[in-house]
Simulated assay, not measured.
Amino acid sequence: MAHTLSAVAVIALLGVTSALAAEQNPLTPSPTWEDLRFDVVGERTISDVGSPLAVEAPYRAHDAATVPVILRQTDADATIKKATVIIDENPAPVAADLTFGPGMAPVDIELRVRVNQYSNVRVLTETPAGLFMTGRYVKASGGCSAPASRDPEQALAGLGQMKLRLFGEAEPQQSMARREAQIMLRHPNYSGLQRNQVTQLFIPAHFIDHMEVWQGDEMLFTMDGGISISENPVFRFGYTDNGAPSLRVVATDTEGNRFEQVLAKTAGG
């Protein structure tokens, strides 16, 4: 009986250890990543423990074309320069390169991505201490080829329109207050894998490839993206308000269009 209890205890302990390891690093083994790794980071060393960013994403996505991914800083002392979001099994795995200004610290940002099949969604975080990796495994399929929500003519009619929404009770020009904002950009972000529902022909890829968010002369963050960013991109983020009365957003797409808009800080949006 003693031997039986010891065996049960060992099995239970192993189960707890495995559960803790999965919680700390829920990424699964990925031959695809082994093929991608050199193209993304070259020979740089990556640590898969101690990342200063935690990643939140649904284990089973409700909509594969708009999967929310939240990056939240867990180490207040870390200086996070850049984060790269990679979706291993997508046709274009590098979804977004995000670069952060000082006003974004501590980093807390949400974006929405397409997931084409069951995949790791990994985040590489660059700090002065090195490169760290963490992420989530997401069950979703068909996100990159999912039909657009609008027909092409209707989608292009509102191309580049932007909207800012602010959350919280801070006054519009209260300097150094921590605020939360959401920027919405109207763009179909065609992946090149979607079909026109009338002609059944593939719609050529046409997506936002670069975006900048500024408050006054201070850059908050930039985003270099690909086809994995969802239709009508949405970015929700926390930042330290420097007192500037507005946010300025600049974006470009793969057709050479440039969109720029100054969005007044009005609470509630």
Results as ranks from 00 to 15, higher is better:
Ala96Val: 13
Pro106Cys: 12
Glu126Val: 13
Ala140Gly: 10
Ile109Cys: 06
Pro147Lys: 11
Gly143Glu: 01
Cys144Glu: 13
Asp88Leu: 08
Thr127Lys: 14
Arg112Ala: 05
Ala129His: 15
Gly101Ser: 09
Pro91Gly: 06
Leu124Ile: 06
Phe100Thr: 01
Asn120Pro: 05
Phe132Gly: 05
Pro102Leu: 15
Tyr118Asp: 11
Pro91Glu: 04
Arg114Thr: 06
Glu126Tyr: 13
Ala96Tyr: 01
Asn116Ser: 10
Ala95Ser: 06
Val107Gly: 11
Thr127Glu: 15
Thr125Ala: 10
Thr127Asp: 14
Val121Lys: 00
Ala96Lys: 00
Pro91Arg: 04
Val123Thr: 03
Gly143Asn: 06
Gly103Ile: 05
Pro102Cys: 09
Met133Cys: 04
Glu110Ala: 14
Asn90Trp: 02
Val138Leu: 01
Val123Met: 02
Gly142Asp: 02
Val113Gln: 07
Arg150Val: 08
Lys139Tyr: 07
Arg114Met: 10
Cys144Asn: 12
Val123Gln: 01
Ile87Asp: 01
Leu111Met: 12
Ser149Glu: 11
Met104Asp: 06
Asn116Asp: 13
Val123Arg: 00
Pro152Cys: 07
Val107Glu: 11
Met104Phe: 11
Leu131Ala: 10
Tyr137Met: 12
Asn120His: 06
Thr125Val: 13
Leu131Lys: 13
Glu153Tyr: 10
Arg112Gln: 11
Arg114Ala: 09
Gly103Met: 14
Glu110Cys: 02
Tyr137Lys: 07
Val121Cys: 00
Ala148Leu: 14
Ala140Leu: 08
Glu126Gly: 10
Gly142Met: 02
Gly135Glu: 05
Ala129Gly: 11
Val107Gln: 10
Asp97Ile: 08
Gln117Ile: 04
Pro102Asn: 09
Thr125Trp: 07
Val121Ser: 03
Asn116Met: 00
Cys144Lys: 03
Glu110Val: 03
Met104Ile: 10
Thr99Pro: 00
Cys144Gln: 08
Phe100Lys: 03
Asn90Thr: 04
Ile87Trp: 02
Ala95Gln: 01
Ser145Glu: 09
Ser141Cys: 01
Asp97Met: 06
Ala96Leu: 06
Val107Met: 14
Glu89Tyr: 06
Tyr118Asn: 12
Ser145Pro: 00
Ile109Ala: 05
Leu98Gln: 03
Ala140Met: 07
Ser145Asp: 04
Glu126Ser: 15
Pro102Met: 13
Thr125Lys: 05
Asp108Lys: 11
Gly103Arg: 15
Pro91His: 03
Gly142Glu: 01
Pro106Arg: 11
Tyr118Arg: 12
Pro93Met: 05
Tyr118Gly: 07
Gly135Pro: 03
Arg122Tyr: 00
Pro128Ala: 10
Val107His: 08
Gly103Val: 09
Cys144Thr: 08
Arg136Thr: 00
Thr125Leu: 08
Ala105Ile: 05
Pro102Arg: 11
Lys139Ser: 13
Arg114His: 07
Gln117His: 04
Ala95Phe: 02
Ser119Thr: 06
Pro106Ser: 11
Val113Gly: 05
Thr127Pro: 15
Lys139Cys: 04
